[in-house]
């Protein structure tokens, strides 16, 4: 059996993703794990959540339902030792079904949906579980290179409880034909890319309502003492 490779993170500089060239540190990073080992992160109470923060199909309705394929995204947040992480804040954002972001700097010629914003948030429960409803995001072109398209994805900002548990990532959908052409996805070592891809869960589907995807998140830090 092959040993598991825990080196899953992308490099800072990944030239095929052109914006990294002028925006990535060039000098060695200062190791501070010991110095900052006692630093925890802010904790949010339930009152940060409003009624439809975990339902992007409802939290921006103006005159009807958003267009597109309604889905449920659910999963659990763990630390590297497999311990569930409760009360972790997940903030999410995404394009609409046509591949258009609400953001004003977005220039892609695809329609906005008056009933879809694409932003939401959720806290994990005592077992580290979360779930939200949304519309499956569309693919969209971007300016990185000729005919560059991003695979369908949902952005996650994750705020856990230790300094190492602040993560921003993207969740992808299984079998996307754009994976092999996307330098952001490809920046992750090949053996670890599957960690960014949600799993289709027929058994979690809401019959006659929404298909379901499972996306589990493992928050890192190099807690080698746990494993040595």
């Amino acid at each position: 059996m092959e040993p598991v490779n825990f080196d899953v993170q992308p490099p800072h500089l990944y030239p095929p993703y052109k914006s990294t060239i002028l925006r990535s540190p060039t000098r060695p990073l200062l190791p501070v794990r010991e110095l900052l080992k006692d630093l925890s992160l802010p904790v949010f109470g339930e009152s940060v959540l409003q009624q439809f923060d975990n339902d992007l199909t409802k939290n921006a309705r103006v005159n009807g339902e958003p267009i597109g394929e309604r889905i449920k995204v659910a999963g659990r947040v763990f630390d590297e030792a497999g311990r569930p992480q409760p009360n972790v804040l997940l903030e999410i954002w995404q394009a609409n079904a046509a591949g258009r972001y609400v953001h004003r700097r977005e220039v892609h010629d695809a329609p906005l949906d008056p009933n879809f914003l694409g932003g939401g948030r959720v806290l994990t429960d005592r077992e580290g579980r979360y779930s939200f409803y949304t519309i499956k995001p569309g693919a969209y072109p971007w300016g990185n290179h000729h005919n560059a398209w991003r695979p369908n994805h949902i952005h996650f900002s994750v705020l856990g409880h230790q300094l190492a548990h602040r993560l921003v990532t993207q969740m992808y959908f299984p079998g996307d034909p754009l994976f092999e052409f996307d330098p952001i996805y490809q920046s992750v070592p090949a053996h670890a890319r599957e960690l960014l891809v949600a799993r289709f869960r027929m058994d979690w589907t809401d019959p006659e309502f929404a298909l379901a995807y499972e996306f589990n998140i493992v928050l890192g830090g190099h807690h080698q003492s746990l494993f040595e």
């Binding site: 899953v8 030792a81 972001y101």
Partner: peptide
């Protein structure tokens, strides 16, 4: 030991959520 979730860029369009 579980493998960490890899980091990805926040991208240019975070503002309407964050």
């Amino acid at each position: 030991r579980l493998r960490q979730t890899p980091s990805q860029t926040v991208g240019p369009f975070f503002a309407y959520s964050l």
